[in-house]
């Protein structure tokens, strides 16, 4: 039964991979299209891909009796699932199709990583299998997904700002997010991501105290997480409390995300963290 489930899961994963790719391409064809609107079909492909992806993740979890984000492969796949899922929900409730050209490529990048990264069947060592650790990883992934989408909104903001500054009009079909929309979407997502990250870090700290000995706070991955947490905290303070707006705040979000991704990937490649090299 299990190998059977796993092979179906792999199939669904492949389908999702293809559909995300096609959807991302369609979102980018749209600005150049004159005759027809490509966003609705792109959104449809994304929805189908998301359904297939959900099935893949559920089947894999059932087969392995584990949450779907334990190793690097699953983590990246789960991240893609969070990014696309969040985008679809927001597009559905708030009509944010202008975020699609940024969200889908990001989601695809994550699922692409999942497809090419090593770490196929790595699992946690039995000693680490605990609920608090699962929640730590899950929350961190969820936070990462929110922040990735906030990054997309910030990029959308800068693209729209650039276009307005250059007085280059959008083709009428290509309705972009307004600056105000992009700004609020980014803020809400950063707030969500920040909350997830905070709880994730606290749980991680608690887990570290019980599993690790020595100075766990100087673990590179922990340090990067703390730096990123501070950057996003600063953004939320500036935006929420002081009321600071505009392109600089968006640049801050982008830097936060870039530092996080580069840092995590770098630490993983260098293998200097006590976190498993096979997990994010």
């Amino acid at each position: 039964m299990t190998p059977h489930l796993l092979s179906i899961s792999a199939c669904c994963f492949g389908v999702a991979f293809l559909l995300y790719l096609l959807s991302a391409l369609l979102y980018w064809v749209n600005p150049f299209a004159k005759a027809m609107e490509f966003r609705p079909p792109a959104a449809l492909l994304a929805r189908l891909g998301f359904a297939s992806h959900t099935l893949a993740i559920v089947l894999r979890s059932l087969a392995q009796h584990e949450p779907p984000f334990i190793n690097l492969l699953q983590g990246a796949s789960f991240l893609a699932w969070v990014i696309v899922g969040l985008f679809l929900v927001m597009d559905w409730r708030l009509r944010l199709s202008g975020l699609g050209p940024f969200a889908l490529p990001t989601g695809f990048a994550a699922i692409f990583l999942a497809a090419v990264l090593p770490g196929r069947s790595q699992s946690l060592v039995p000693a680490l299998k605990s609920n608090s650790l699962y929640i730590h990883i899950g929350l961190s992934m969820l936070g990462l997904g929110c922040l990735a989408l906030a990054f997309c909104a910030a990029v959308a903001y800068l693209a729209q700002e650039r276009r307005l500054k250059r007085k280059r009009l959008p083709a009428t079909l290509d309705r972009a997010l307004s600056l105000d929309q992009a700004d609020s979407v980014a803020t809400v997502l950063v707030a969500l991501g920040f909350a997830c990250l905070t709880f994730g870090l606290i749980l991680g700290g608690m887990a570290a105290r019980s599993f690790w000995t020595g100075l766990w706070l100087v673990d590179p991955k922990v340090l990067i997480s703390v730096v990123v947490w501070l950057i996003y905290g600063a953004y939320l303070y500036a935006r929420g409390v002081v009321g600071w707006r505009g392109r600089e705040t968006m640049v801050l979000i982008i830097w936060g995300f870039v530092i996080m991704v580069v840092g995590l990937v770098g630490v993983n490649l260098a293998g200097v963290s006590r976190h498993s090299p096979y997990s994010l």
């Binding site: 729209q160 307005l164 959008p170 307004s178 600056l179 105000d180 929309q181």
Partner: peptide, 8 residues
């Protein structure tokens, strides 16, 4: 129209 591009 432009105002809408900025402020929604």
């Amino acid at each position: 129209e432009l105002a809408k591009e900025i402020f929604g």
